[in-house]
Amino acid sequence: MRGSSAVSPEAQTVRFAVSAVVERAERSQALFGDKAAAISQLQAMAIECAEPGWDGDEASAINPLAVFVAENFVRALPNFIPLPEFAPEPDGSISLDWIPSRHRLFSISIGTNNRLAYAWLDGADKGHAVARFDGDRIPQRVVEGITSILSHGYASVRTA
């Protein structure tokens, strides 16, 4: 006797639901994986710059609180924004950079408080500002700024 290949409507619905759940889980795992990798990279940089003078001059050690705030910032980034590059700054802050080309970049400094300094270059246009980060949501102005800089296509130039 041959087995039937017919599937009941209920079974079909369950199958679709399971597929959707699996797909969502895989997608969030991929995103979490990317962010986890970025945070690992950030922590490695912080270890490398944990002592003063890491630049061969008088730079301060990276501040652990700045690392904590930067991690929260990365976790809070909307999924449609590519992950940034990281760089240490001589005052112990951390710079998060999006550099699609030499002519367009967005750079934000994360220090030990919730006010974040940022600047951008966009062709002949340039500017700077300060935004407040509550630890959970990226300020809308910052999201718009990054999105604008990346809007012409983001050819990642990350080295790590």
């Binding site: 630049d55 005052d91 710079s95 550099i99 080295t159």
Partner: peptide, 20 residues
């Protein structure tokens, strides 16, 4: 002295930030 101060395109702004 930090590879994180440049990428394949250019030096990053952090490379030129002044010492406080």
């Amino acid at each position: 002295t930090q590879s994180s101060h440049y990428n394949s395109a250019m030096p990053k702004p952090a490379a030129f930030m002044p010492d406080p």
